[in-house]
Design a binder for these strands. Structure first.
Lengths: 199, 199
DNA sequence: CTAGAATCTAGTCAGTGTCTAGAAATGTAG
DNA sequence: CTACATTTCTAGACACTGACTAGATTCTAG
């Protein structure tokens, strides 16, 4: 915290830019994120950020990678502690993911903004690392026969789609005033049991 | 047609702005959409769009409403023709939605960009109209006992989440080279049957 | 201590969204 | 047909942005 005297060499510009950018991102969205404004707030000239990020997109990409890292750590932590049946651990995964999505909606959007970033190997890597634990969870459950594995790929896809869709729907504000955790566990339960009525 | 002589009064500026904007949107994304550039292409001064849209967000909102209208028409048409069991009609819904999502990813993102538009009644209305047919489909199936209705809300939520998630995953390019229609119908089948192994 | 590299400043440029005043076309009474 | 009011468009301006450049300052090896 020694922000007292603004030295010529800031010393920690890159990290502070990222921190400031992430703060701004969640309050104003990507549209309202301005490199010049960040520089102004930090107390540095408008050209300084260029030394660390060649352009604005590079800053956004770095933010996305940090987001994947953080998400990965949260998933690892949550799933590391989770014990019990597959259903319970799956619910933990869903809740952790949804919690991250609601806590950092703009950041999550940035992470999956593949529209304009067709190729970004670092992002793909970060993505893979982040979801390592849940992927292992699913694979393990299939190997142990806890879930259907006629077509493992299909089952995994349905699972990920549902959780991703949950996050979309919740961050989109489409669940009204329903309690988030109840919606999440209810959806997981429904998914496990199937939509068809029990005979 | 008849673009020959650029008259002072364009006569159809609003509609042409929307058409041009939608075209540009899918090629360059929201970021690359510039009011001035649109005006330039249409051959009108940079201030002209302001007569029809007070600001850029108004143009984007209008685009989103048009998107909901179009999606609604496609869903109505597809579900109107669909016959057979609930599972089949559900698959038709999912395919139609996913097809729309892949055909107009940027437009869809705009439609659900609630992040910065907390309240926009016209968008909510358009949203409701667009999904009238699938909502009726689900309600009907629950009434007819074709799907579980212990908690209708929960079931509907799981269904919509899965389909929305499918669209996200597919437009995000996360299905690799798997055939889209197979992924869609496989996911729906898995959802109907449930993840737990058949005893 | 001193060169060279890394970092930051300051100035510039084209481009953008928004705002204004006013010109031009259209519609509407009389 | 004419006069007027309204709609639609033009033209100029402003503050802002991301990007580029040259040069000043600081840090760091050797």
């Amino acid at each position: 915290m020694a922000e007292a005297i603004p030295r010529y060499h800031h010393g920690n510009l890159r990290a502070e830019l990222l921190a400031s950018a992430e703060r701004k991102l969640e309050t104003t969205g990507v549209q309202g994120l301005s490199l010049r404004e960040l520089a102004r707030e930090i107390g540095v000239s408008h050209g300084a950020p260029r030394q660390h990020f060649p352009d604005k997109q590079a800053l956004l990409d770095a933010l996305a990678v940090l987001g994947f890292d953080r998400l990965g750590r949260e998933l690892d932590a949550a799933l590391g502690e989770a014990e019990g049946a597959f259903a319970d651990r799956l619910t933990v995964f869903a809740r952790t993911y949804v919690r991250f999505a609601t806590a950092h909606p703009a950041l999550l959007a940035l992470m999956f903004a593949r529209k304009d970033r067709p190729d970004a190997p670092e992002l793909l890597e970060a993505n893979g690392r982040a979801f390592a634990a849940p992927v292992a969870l699913i694979a393990g459950a299939q190997a142990a026969g806890e879930i259907d594995s006629d077509d493992p790929d299909r089952v995994a896809m349905a699972l990920l789609a549902t959780i991703q869709g949950l996050a979309s729907i919740i961050t989109g504000g489409m669940i009204g005033d329903r309690p988030v955790d109840a919606v999440v566990s209810g959806t997981i339960e429904t998914l496990l049991r199937g939509l068809r009525p029990a005979r």
